[in-house]
Design a protein around this nucleic acid. Structure first.
Lengths: 130, 130
DNA sequence: ATAGGGCTTCCACCTACTGGAAGGTCAAGA
DNA sequence: TCTTGACCTTCCAGTAGGTGGAAGCCCTAT
């Protein structure tokens, strides 16, 4: 199958598929016309990558996960470690965002949002924090 | 004052300060030796930008916020709109991360993490979602 | 034969920096 | 006075993960 069909089946944009080939994540065959030819296994792999990316794994993580996925002699501990590290990173990100969110929410609530220049948001950003 | 002092006072790395000048966010004077010379007002502005960035505002938002900050005739509504939009974006990001987090957490808990190849994490990423 | 859609490569751009190389400047100490 | 080391400068390249667009080939249907 050609790139468009692979793209539609996996919900990975064609541009992105080409990019994944560029960085060696997938290596589809080529037809006599130079077109990429995607096998079922290519499509599966692409779907796997797409779902791993949707879970926020980095490309490098995806590379590792794919190779573990394809390795019959993998140890699930290796997979779990990657997932746990990622989970920790996500928790950290959520915590950071949450803190920002609280500050911002407070500022927004304190700002009149009218035609006058007085603004607690700017005042707060403008002065050094304790 | 020179870049290092401005950097230390504002906690904005010197490299980043130079970058901010590149993109026209700040325009420090130059001394006869070509060194950047930072006035108190430059430092204040830099601090403002640093804190706005720490709240997750984009550089373009910072540009607008700085100009509103410096404008006596601003309307707080303009500031509030920017902050509200940003708050919404943050909420969306938190929600997305939270969803990922739950999925990932479930998978991690279901994975034995031992020497055996059997792995619910890979199985889940490997098969199409309903 | 021509029109359209799909395919190819390549290059540039995005955000917000960061690292490093090559070289100029300045103040303090021998 | 010379030298050393800490500054400072510019410029180029790279990061993550794509996305947009141009120029040009290919394939099928009419």
């Amino acid at each position: 199958m050609n790139i468009k069909d692979a793209s539609e089946l996996t919900h990975v944009p064609a541009k992105t598929i080409r990019y994944y080939e560029d960085i060696g994540l997938i290596v589809p065959q080529r037809g006599p016309n130079g077109y990429r030819v995607f096998s079922d296994s290519d499509v599966n792999k692409l779907g796997f990558i797409g779902r791993a990316r949707a879970l926020g794994f980095t490309i490098e993580d995806c590379r590792t996960l794919v190779s573990l996925w394809e390795d019959d002699r993998r140890e699930s501990a290796d997979v779990k470690r990657i997932a746990e590290d990622h989970l920790e990173a996500i928790d950290a990100k959520i915590a950071a965002l949450h803190e920002i969110r609280e500050t911002l929410d407070d500022l927004v609530h304190r700002c009149a949002g009218d035609h006058r220049p007085n603004c607690p948001i700017l005042e707060s950003i403008g002065k050094e924090q304790s």
